[in-house]
Amino acid sequence: MLGLAKGLGYTFKKLTEKKVTHFYPDVPFPMPPRFRGIQHFSPEKCIVCNQCARVCPTECIQLTGKPHPDPEKKGKIIDTYDINFEICILCDLCTEVCPTEAIVMTNNFELAVYSRDELYKDLKWLDDNNTNVREEN
């Protein structure tokens, strides 16, 4: 019976202890600086090297480039850039290989939508997702 009493004592003490519940939707959840959230993509930095699409384990990145509009300059600029967040696992490998930090992680993580189609994020959306961008990459 002693064990039972000890247990009861323990739970009774907890009655008044500080609660750990986080009021999440009302109070935003702070994420540490390294948190891997939804990517931010800055098209002006991209050199269309295709490394992110190649390293992606789930092949959720699709991109196309087009020739540089300025005929003086060599290379390509980005034309379309889509990430399918239905299958993206936010593994951080795309940002790891990117040589110009055109694609970086942000601390934003709220991706819930009402339709699967909305989970295909295009270049513009990813460009606009420019808050809480991760510093270290």
Binding site: P33, F35, L90, C91, D92, M105, R134
Partner: peptide
Amino acid sequence: FNELCGARMTFN
């Protein structure tokens, strides 16, 4: 872990 590697369970 979240501070260390940016994820809570899927560490990578």
